[in-house]
Structure formats: C-alpha cells, structure tokens
Design a binder for these strands. Structure first.
Length: 746
DNA sequence: TGGGAGTGCTTTTTT
DNA sequence: AGCACTCCCA
C-alpha cells in the first residue's frame, strides 16, 4: 500500500513526522515546501494524532489555501470542507461571523477592500471638513493600516507632534465611522479577532483547546499582529509548525517581519529546526547563481540550496543598447525557443516594476506572440461588479455608507453633488448623539433633494422585498436588473463587456452556492457562546467572499502564452525558461531601495526569488539606455549581475565595450555602437530596420510621391508602427510612417 | 452631467 | 511618456 511518506527525502520525512512539538522549517525555494506542509497534516490525521477538526493551517493567499486543500483531499479520504485551512483574513472572517456579538459587530458586517477603505476615508475627510492636501487619504490609509498591523488602536498610538496627533484623531474618527456603518477593513479583521480572543476568555479557551496543531505557510511574510495572533491561539499548548524562507522575504514594505522567524525560534524554544535545502526545480548553475547572490546578505538564518540534477546550461547574459532593443532581443530569443518546441506558457518574462512591461508587450504584440500580463484589475474589482455588489450590500446592511455613496446616483437618477451634500449634513453628528448613516438620513431628508433621494431609498426597499426568499443567484439577478445597471450598460457603447461581466457575476453566485453548499455546517463556537444557532446568510457570505478573494486577474486565458509579471508576483511560481530584464542600477535594485534601511537586502532577496523561478534556462539582460518617466536614462548594469560568478555565465554580448567604435567588429548581429550623442534619437539597428516592414534599411535610397528622392537616415518601431526618417535634401528631413507613406525603393 | 483639458505622479502587492 | 484624477465649462 502506498504510503504518504513515499518519495520524501530524509529532511522532508523528518519534518513530516516530527513529534508533537514546535518546529521551524526553513524551506528553500523549490524544496517541496507545500508538499511537506500538506503531508504533515495528512500524516497527523492518518496516524490519529489529531482530527481534521484540530488542525489550523494558515496561508497568505487564497491560491495557496486552495492548493493545500486540494492536495489534502487527494491524500486523505476526508471531507476537507469545514477544516480550518485558509488565509489569515479568511479565518478571521470565519471567527467573527461566528462570534459577531462578542466582537461587537452586526451579524451582516461587510468587509471593505482597499478601494472601499480609501473611499471611506475620503468621505470621512469631507464630512469632517479636513484638508485632504494636508492629510492625503492615501497616507492616512497607510497610517491607519500600519497602526492596526502593529496592534495599535488610536488611543495607543504614540503622537509627539500636532500632525501625528491629528492623524490619530482621524484614525479614531475613521474607526467610529466603520463601527457605525458595520464595516471592517482588512487589517480590522485581524485586529478585531485578536482582541476578541484576548478579551473573551471562553472563546479563547475554546479555540486554544480545539486547535492542537497550527501550521503556518510563508512564515517570513507574517506581520507583527499576525504573529501575536498565532501566539495567542497557540497559547493552549498547540504545536506550531512554521514554514518559511527568510531569503524569500520580499514584503517588508507592507509590514512583513522576517524577524518573526528568529523570535519564533526563541520564544517558542523551538526544539526542531529543519532545513530543506535540496532543490527539485532548477539546474545547478541556476542554483549556484542564486546562492552566490544571496550570500551577500547579512544575518541570514543560513541555507544553501543544492540539486542532483546536474549543472545544466550557463546563464545567458545580454547587454542591450536600449530598452527597445532589449525587448526585441527577448522576443527574438523567445521566437527561436518556441520554434524549437518550447511551450510559450513555460517562458516567463520578469521585471522589477510594472512600467517595464510596456516595451516588452509592444515587442511581443508586434511579433504576434501571444502573451499574458499578470496584475491589473481583478474580477471583483471591476466597476460594474462593485456597483452590483454595492446594491447587494445595501440589502444586507443599509448602513454601509460606502455602498450607499457608490450607487446612490449610479445609474444617474438626478442626485447631484448638492443633494449629496445635504444628505451628508443631515447625517452629521448632532450634539449628544452620534452621526447617522446616509441611509437613515436619507429616510428623513426633506425638500427637493429628499424627493430624489427618496426614490433611491424606495428602490432599495423594493429590491430588498423582491429578494425575499430568493436564492443567491436570483438575488444577484434582481439587483442588476432593478438597479438599472443592465439597462444602463445596454445604452453605453462600450458596455458589452460590462454586461458580460454582470452575467458572470450571476455565474459566480451560482458557483459560490454550489461550492459552499448552503446551508453549511453550524458556525463553530455556538457551544461556547450560547449564541442562537443562526444559519449562515448566503448573501453576507458571498459579499465577504467577493472582498476577500478578488478573483482572477483576467478572464481565464488559459491559452499558451508567454507569461509577463513582476518579480513579486512570480514568487511561488516556476518556469522552464525565465528572462529577467532590466538588470540595471536604479531599476533592480530599485533606486528608492538604496536609501531605505535594509532596502538593498530586500532587493537582493527579490533577485534571489527571480533567479530561483527558472528550471532549465535563465536569461539576464540589461540596457544602456532606457526611457523612464518620459526621460532617457543611462544606467549602469546591476550589481547583482556582478555577484554571479563569471564561470556560471555566458555573455551573448561582449562583456567589455570599447568607448568609441566606428563599426561593430564582433559580428553579433544585434549589436550596434553607441549613438554619437546622448540626445540623438533612440538607437536603431540595421536588424530592426530590415524588420520594419518593406525591407528598408538605413542608407537606402527611396522615392516618395511628394518629396521625391531621399535617403533613409534612421528608423524606429516595427510592424504597423514602423517609421523611418528620410533625408529628402531640399525638402528637408522627415519622419514617415511606413503604413501611411508610400515609399518605394529608388 | 458629462466630456475635455489641465495637473501631478510614477517600486514592489495580498487580503 | 502614460495614466489617473480633478476641475471647469457647455
């Protein structure tokens, strides 16, 4: 009979079968981390050391949680539904739904995503008449979130100057507003749960007794509050297994504390630290490069990846003249890879910052190579979806002012800025009593504004009545119909996609219901709290789901496409072929990071993550000239390139470039000498010109219907975008788009 | 109310 | 250079 433990290497096996004690697993990139984590859970359950009920497994992303659940149900014949495996936020949501009373929340509390939070802050500033130039909403949002993530309520934030004192006041006002509206932001989910467990002894004791084994994925990404949260839950003698890689900590900028790993080891007196250093992903040269890079960081917990796969190919390095030329080289290289049979989806194009994708996309597009860019708008973040959800939110909780303000006049129903201002005024707190919600104020608003707002209130009431007793998907249909959203987008000329997305929202509701299988199990904890048993509300659950899991970035283009993404979003993924472009000082490492404390080390970890994404072949490239923020910049090559031992690399371009060159002498067809003047138009190469359509090249004599004879001086772009600069002598020098101008060889 | 012009920002991102 | 956001005018 096959065992769970088959095919584990000794370290993995040791980790999986550790006795019931705390453990820290230092899992290098590609060392089988997820496998260890899931097998550990399966093994604990299979050997009867714990029931599915007694396990708590925490991840950072929904994707990771889903994968864990999927693998687990493949390993064990158990129903994983109902197991406490999920993201920090998802699990907190679950706890707060079960104990909403003790957490002082309405039963149908809503979750604000970042965009909702920002608009809530803007609305607050307006209501309080606060200058948003002096207190930019974005800064306030960061301030508030950072405070919460440090576990600090407004009264606990230290403020030594007037500015901070004012910000703290705003923080407090924001909290009041959220509480009044019955909404929580992401950080609040964590903090509120933490406080609930800390404050209410029976609930804490219940969960402490329940969870015997706590497992944490990507532990290096935990922030202060998450770590405290874990300590609290583990306080009843649970065993904590933390899995992480300090070398892959790349989220310090959003509050992640690598130091938690050291603290964990010390505070839990962890008897078992296991290093997973055998890498199953990459060839030796790639690993050696990664090791050589990360070695330059100080204070590591220490780890050295190795493989038995053999050293493989050298790492290819390319120096381009310009960003455009770099992109063209990448595309050319991809083309030949694809020609040789490489699947496009196995090729990843990584860059440090999103702005770099444009040039690459352009080159790919021109070359007619299918590609997919990660990042950008996700399904539940689209405006039409957020509008529809806002209507649903108002059904669930009319006091949700964010939802109210979002759709009170969308589709337009004659409620302009003035009416809204009156409404805000009416909702403003009066002496002795707190502020009212916009909804409550709307019900009592008189005058002309009162009339038009009354129409909206009536609409929501009608919608709520219409939804009575309906299934979730039917409710969604009612909402998008009665609200007028469908009618609105039907008249809009670009509305087709939006209508399709609204349909898709109905589908999402159908799927949600079938996956969750309402009515689900009892919310846990009733025994503790004596709360009346309330079946979970499908609408509230669905809305929480929409906030917590924003969905796919793009409609499932599962086509075979080249993958473009930032290094950050590549974390956790792997590809046969990886290109890391823009390896230039100022870009990667990013210039802003140089000034930050420990910034450079984080950049280096980022580089480490990037390099370890590759299985078989790694390309590194940089450009001498790059357009950034509308200006041409001349960057030096990245220090990270220098950190890779020379013998691991193969330069596709000469490593040392002569200062002045009249003609390229080293036969590389991609290479052209530097332009004579920095201000000269972007570098063109003969290669590009030949590819620019029409087969023109620099120096060629051409004929133009109006300007007569001329000679091509330079060219840029390619495909339909190709332009050439032609010197027509007396007629002057002109730029001509080849797709427009009729040029013939003369 | 909606579109067009003007303004300012620009590392990385999940929940 | 682009893009998002604001403001002002018809």
């Amino acid at each position: 009979m096959p065992s769970l433990l088959d095919n584990l290497n000794p370290e993995q096996l040791a980790a999986v079968t550790l006795p019931a004690q705390h453990a820290l697993i230092l899992a290098g990139a590609g060392s089988g981390k997820t496998r260890v984590l899931t097998t550990r859970i399966a093994w604990l359950i299979q050997t009867g050391q714990v029931g599915p009920h007694g396990v708590l497994a925490v991840t950072f992303t929904n994707k990771a949680a889903k994968e864990m659940l999927a693998r687990l149900s493949a390993m064990l014949p158990i129903n994983t539904r109902g197991m406490w495996i999920g993201t920090f936020h998802g699990l907190c949501n679950r706890l707060l739904r079960a104990h909403w009373r003790e957490a002082a929340l309405p039963q149908t509390f809503q979750i604000l995503d970042s965009a909702d939070q920002l608009s809530a802050i803007k609305r607050l500033l307006k209501a309080l008449n606060i200058d948003d130039e002096k207190y930019p909403p974005r800064d306030l949002m960061h301030f508030i979130n950072a405070s919460k993530e440090a576990g600090l309520r407004a009264h606990a934030v230290e403020a030594w100057d007037d500015f901070t004192r004012r910000r703290v006041e705003i923080y407090q006002e924001y909290e009041n507003q959220c509480q009044r509206e019955g909404v929580v932001d992401f950080a609040e989910l964590l903090l509120r749960t933490y406080e609930l467990l800390e404050r209410v002894e029976p609930i804490r004791a219940h969960y402490q007794a329940r969870f015997r084994h706590i497992l944490v994925d990507e532990f290096q990404d935990t922030n202060v509050l998450q770590y405290r949260w874990l300590k609290l839950l583990a306080g009843g003698g649970a065993c904590v297994m933390a899995v992480g890689d300090d070398d892959q900590s790349i989220y310090a900028f959003r509050g992640a504390e690598v130091g938690n790993m050291r603290d964990f080891e010390r505070e839990f007196r962890v008897p078992n630290v296991i290093r997973l250093e055998q890498n199953y992903r990459s060839h030796g040269n790639i690993l050696d490069a990664a090791n050589a890079i990360i070695k330059n960081n100080a204070g590591r917990l220490g780890k050295n990846l190795w493989t038995d796969r053999g050293s493989g190919e050298p790492i290819r390095v390319y120096e381009a003249m310009s960003d455009t030329e770099e992109a063209r080289w990448v595309v050319e290289e991809i083309r030949s890879l694809v020609m040789e049979g490489t699947a496009r989806r196995e090729i990843a194009l990584l860059y440090r910052s999103n702005a770099q994708s444009r040039v690459l996309e352009h080159a790919l597009f021109t070359a007619n190579l299918p590609y997919r860019v990660y990042g950008g708008l996700r399904f539940f973040e689209r405006q039409e979806i957020k509008h529809a959800l806002a209507y649903l939110r108002l059904i669930a909780n009319p006091d949700d002012d964010t939802a109210f303000a979002r759709v009170v006049n969308f589709p337009t129903r004659g409620i302009g800025a003035r009416s809204l201002e009156q409404l805000q005024d009416a909702a403003r707190p009066v002496m002795g009593e707190g502020a009212a919600s916009l909804w409550a104020a709307a019900k009592n608003l008189g005058g002309k504004a009162g009339q038009s707002v009354g129409v909206f209130v009536a609409l929501i009431d009608r919608l709520r009545a219409a939804c009575e007793g309906l299934s979730l998907p039917e409710m969604v249909e009612q909402a998008i119909e009665l609200s007028g959203l469908v009618a609105h987008y039907k008249t809009e000329k670009e509305g087709q996609d939006r209508l399709a997305n609204l349909d898709e929202l109905v589908n999402a509701a159908v799927n949600f219901v079938s996956e969750e299988g309402f009515p689900v199990e009892q919310p846990p904890g009733d025994a503790v709290t004596d709360a009346p048993v309330v079946p979970p509300d499908p609408l509230a659950s669905f809305l929480a789901h929409a906030s917590l899991e924003a969905g796919e970035h793009q409609a499932g283009d599962s086509d075979d496409a080249v993958q473009l993404m930032t290094v950050h979003s590549a974390k956790g993924l792997e590809f046969n072929i990886v290109f890391i472009s823009g390896l230039e000082e100022g870009l990667f490492p990013h210039e802003n990071s140089i000034l930050e404390d420990k910034g450079l080390e984080e950049e280096r970890r980022l580089m480490y993550v990037a390099v370890t994404r590759a299985r078989e072949r790694l390309y590194l490239s940089f450009a001498q000239t790059r357009m950034l923020h509308g200006q041409t910049r001349y960057n030096m090559k990245s220090r990270f390139l220098e950190e890779i031992p020379e013998l691991l690399t193969k330069w596709l371009t000469p490593k040392v470039r002569p200062q002045r060159v009249a003609e390229p002498t080293w036969g590389n067809r991609y290479y052209e000498p530097k332009p004579a003047y920095p201000s000269a138009p972007p570098v063109r190469t003969r290669y590009e010109t030949e590819n620019s359509g029409g087969g023109f090249r620099i120096g060629q004599q051409v004929q133009h219907a109006k300007f007569g004879q001329g000679v091509i001086v330079s060219a840029e772009g390619s495909g339909s975008d190709a332009r050439v600069q032609v010197n027509f002598g007396r007629e002057g020098i002109k730029w001509l788009a080849l797709s427009v101008a009729k040029l013939t060889p003369a």
